[in-house]
Nucleic acid binder design. Structure first.
Length: 451
RNA sequence: GGAGAGGUGGCAGAGUGGCCGAAUGCGCCGCCUUGCUAAGGCGGUGAGCCCGUAAGGGUUCCGUGGGUUCAAAUCCCACCCUCUCCGCCA
């Protein structure tokens, strides 16, 4: 989902590689790429010129400070000359700004390059099934979907959700509400106590700058809920850096990845791993016809997220590790699922390599995404300015800071997990067996049945 | 909602027009000395960008943006943020 950006130097110096990588994602806008190289060249030329002028001005100004007689004709003359230099600098700075703005706009529009191990393909048909875990539950009867089950048990109320908040909102009730809460606690406990993640409870309203860091902005604004604020809150929006908008977070990835924006982490602390629960909000613009029934696609949903920061050389292994942690949730819950590796064209905008976890939904007779685990390379770190200082090899000088690699994955989307449990654990009489791993969180409840 | 204070390098904290990318202390790194649950001495220690094979050089950055000036951390304007006190509130 996030955007962020590629490295400007890398792109301009390795244009052929970049072109090839983008092509694997179905990107072939040659005109934009040539505008990019042009803007980069202009920028460099202008910088060389303006810096030379600045050097002159600095040297002369310094000398002027030493002159005793500030009333002399010579002083006045130099001052006039320097004033002229100042104007030239200003003009060049404007050109530099323009070139950089153009460059940035293009760079922000380019998706991340796929990792070499990401398979070819332009859409989901190019995804590769990696493994299937467990097998379809042998129900022995025609499975009902979670809408029918949840409604009959009176644990999900779609009509009242719509009444108070509109379509794509639902109310959980009784054992349904408890189950949602149990899943949240179960997942957070698993990751924080067994998988070594530090638990985070983040704010849900986030600034536009945070959304830029992970890349939801500027490209995907239509997917977000923006807060219409009180009078005066954002009256200075037009100022470049004054004021800020607030949005409802679409995923905890935003808050948690941005925890370390603008920071230089100590290399010996890596990898850093966080898990966080957050309510998530998505406008779901452009998906009007999809999954209109049920909990699958809501405007508000709950999710436990995993986020990792690591050294570049560890990125790929960290992705496998993180994916394993997400899979562990499904395994402990005894859910049948599969793992697919996303092809170049089906990955999110920022992803370098990614896997989806898909859980089996008997009523739909198919696997549905319940988690997406991605490795972003330095794509997000560049925008969010998240760096680390490598540990000095055997003493010596401090190495230069480098961009970290970021990863994240849902573990899991709670609403969809609830759906999967209802459907996979349903009984002929319409009751639901509570997975053993959750019973201690459900007050010992073993079965959800109609009352 | 009312009143006030402040934003400087990893942290603390000086600095009110040129000698300031920035004192001092702490922290950190290296070397030396020493031996008793440690201390002391010396040196080093921000980031981005541009040129350069490199060595190195240049440039920008003292919350953000703009302005004044030959020259701004320092003067002017606006904004953002943080903290304290009072009120209110889960």
């Amino acid at each position: 989902m996030p955007s962020a950006m590629l490295d400007q130097r890398f792109v301009t110096e390795n244009l052929d590689d970049v072109r090839a990588g983008l092509a694997r994602r179905g990107y072939d806008d040659e005109a934009t790429l040539s505008r990019l190289t042009e803007a980069a060249a202009t920028r460099r030329e202008v910088i060389v010129e303006v810096e030379a002028l600045r050097q002159t001005r600095n040297e002369v100004s310094k000398a002027m400070g030493q002159i005793a007689d500030k009333k002399s004709d010579e002083f006045a003359q130099t001052r006039t000359e320097m004033k002229e230099v100042g104007e030239q600098i200003k003009a060049l700075e404007a050109r530099q700004d323009a070139a950089e703005a153009a460059l940035r706009e293009i760079l922000e529009s380019l998706p991340n390059l796929p990792h070499e191990s990401s398979p070819d393909g332009l859409d989901e048909t190019g995804n590769v099934e990696i493994l299937i875990h467990g097998k379809k539950p042998d129900l022995g009867f025609e499975p009902k979907d979670h809408v029918a089950l949840g409604t009959a048990l009176d644990i999900i109320d779609f009509e009242r959700g719509a009444k108070i908040s509109g379509s794509r909102f639902a109310v959980l009730k009784g054992a349904g509400a408890r189950l949602e809460r149990a899943l949240m606690a179960f997942m957070l406990d698993l990751h924080s106590t067994e998988h070594g993640y530090t638990e985070i409870w983040p704010p849900v309203l986030v600034k536009d700058t945070a959304l830029r860091g992970t890349g939801q902005l500027p490209k995907f604004e239509e997917d977000l809920f923006k807060i219409a604020s009180a009078e005066g809150w954002q009256q200075h929006q037009d100022d470049k850096d004054g004021g800020h908008d607030l949005y409802l977070a679409p995923t905890a990835e935003v808050q948690v990845t941005n925890l370390h924006s603008d920071e230089i982490l100590d290399g010996k602390d890596l990898p850093v791993a966080y898990t966080a629960y957050s309510a998530c909000f998505r406008a779901e613009a452009g998906s009007y016809g999809k999954d209109t029934k049920g909990l699958i696609r809501q405007h508000q949903f709950d999710k436990v997220e995993l986020v990792r920061f690591c050294r570049p050389e560890d990125g790929e292994a960290q992705l496998d590790l993180l994916r394993g942690h997400a899979e562990q949730v499904l395994q402990r819950l005894g859910l049948h699922y599969r793992v697919v590796q996303l092809c170049a064209g089906d990955m999110g905008f920022s992803a370098h390599k990614a896997f989806d976890l898909e859980v089996w939904l008997p009523a739909q007779d198919t696997f549905r995404e319940i988690s997406s685990c991605s490795w972003f390379g330095d794509f997000q770190a560049r925008r969010a300015k998240i760096r680390y200082r490598p540990v000095a090899p055997g003493g010596g000088k401090k190495p230069k800071p480098r961009l970290v690699h970021t990863l994240n994955g849902s573990a899991l989307a709670i609403g969809r997990t609830l759906v999967a449990i209802l459907e996979q654990y349903q009984q002929a009489d319409g009751s639901i067996v509570v997975p053993e791993a959750l019973r201690s969180y459900m007050g010992g409840l073993e079965r959800i049945a109609a009352t």
